[in-house]
Amino acid sequence: MSILNLSINGKPYGPFDVEPGMPMINFLHEYVNLTGTKFGCGEGICHACVVIIDNDDGTSSTHRTCISNVMLFNNQRVRTIEGHAEKNKVGEIIALHPVQNAFIKNFSFQCGWCAPGFTNETVALVEKLKKQPIAKEQVEKVIEDTLGDHVCRCTGYVKYFNATKELILTTEGLTV
């Protein structure tokens, strides 16, 4: 067994005795009851299970939890789909993240299974663009490159794409 400590959505978790080799997604579901991260393939192909790690240098990166050993997240700061909305002191949601608002406004998904992965990837992209704005003419390619690995079986991708494009182009500081 291995001992795991980590932060998830700003809250400390641990120590846990975890099975060696257990994927992070199983830990999230079965140890801390955070079921918003979705299992799609178990091979890192569909990216439904993506979460965010906030690095010490101020950058963030996305990771596929179905193929990542839970111990890779030891002492890391992790963000999952449960952590994006703003909540009050009793945990009630009082405001959604702009990415969530954009996806709702554009009816971006249907069954919702791929939505957490798309949302985490887009949140990380928006945060990156705040630090490293891009030219407007680059926006479509950057979205395609960023979201191109994520599989959605229900929707036509168009609404995810349009929502992300609109958000980037209308949010001050993301483009130059």
């Binding site: 579901h29 079921t35 999952t80 909305a85 969530q100 996806f103 009816f107």
Partner: peptide, 22 residues
Amino acid sequence: SKTIVDMQDMLNGKAIYGYDIK
């Protein structure tokens, strides 16, 4: 064109699918 009623829960990890039962 009403927004689907589960959309917000789906975007906050609160929607309950078969995989989420414990």
